[in-house]
Computed example of a mutant assay.
Amino acid sequence: MATIDVLERNFPGRRAQLKREILLGALACFNEHGLDVTTIEMIKVRCDTSVGNIYHHFGSKEGLAAALFFSSLEDQGRLLSEYLEKAQTAQEGVSAIVYSYVDWVANQPELASFQYQGRSMVAKGPYSDELTARNRSRNQNLLNWWNVPGRRELIKSIPLELFPSLIIGQAESYCRAWLSGRVHTTPTAYRAHLAQAAWLSLGTDVQGNS
């Protein structure tokens, strides 16, 4: 699935075509040069547009980064919801979270690479409140899935702020290594291993008992 597909879902229609083109150009610049080095002028040249168009649609470099970052979060969230809808047990839920994360990174390496470097800029910049609100909404949706008999027992003794790291931490570490070229096997090849590791990190055994 191409990056343009993600942007078309988040910025649909012909009237948003220029927005999508600017975002694609910004993404290429951010990944090639880094967030700090990339300038609006560089993005302008890459997109063959005007500085005025960029500022009109996004306001600033921080606005561009936030639009790309939130598009990534939205797309990840869609895939996670699809996977969780098919999960019934707690262990299947853990696998759904890990599988959706790994599959998304493997399918969207450009956006994933940007997401890792862009998180700090968004979290510390003018869009930090929006990021907090989006994270709170996403976390609440996850909690709603877990908060049923047979699932809630698994997480009731785990601090909520620790829960995502226990499930995603090892998958994130491998995905970062893959994106940087330090390892070469696609993360999807190891997703079953990563899901099992996440399950065991919650204090469970192989049979799914907590």
Rank of each mutant, 00 (worst) to 15 (best):
A2D: 08
A2F: 13
D5T: 02
E8L: 06
G13C: 09
E21R: 12
G25P: 14
F30H: 08
H33Q: 13
T39P: 00
M42H: 08
K44A: 02
R46Q: 12
S50K: 06
N53K: 13
H56A: 12
G63A: 07
L68F: 10
L68S: 09
S71P: 04
L73W: 11
R78N: 03
S81I: 00
S81V: 01
E82Y: 01
Y83N: 05
E85D: 04
E85N: 11
K86Y: 03
A87K: 00
A90E: 03
Q91I: 10
E92S: 04
S95P: 03
A96F: 00
V102W: 03
A112G: 14
F114N: 15
Q115K: 13
S120I: 07
M121V: 12
A123E: 03
K124V: 01
R136H: 05
R138E: 08
N139F: 09
W146V: 10
W146N: 02
G150Q: 04
L154N: 02
S157Q: 07
E161T: 11
E161Q: 05
S165P: 03
Q170T: 01
C175W: 05
R176S: 15
A177W: 01
S180R: 04
H184G: 09
T186L: 05
T188K: 05
R191N: 09
H193A: 15
A195L: 06
A195P: 03
Q196S: 14
A197Q: 11
L202W: 10
L202C: 13
D205C: 07
V206E: 09
N209K: 14
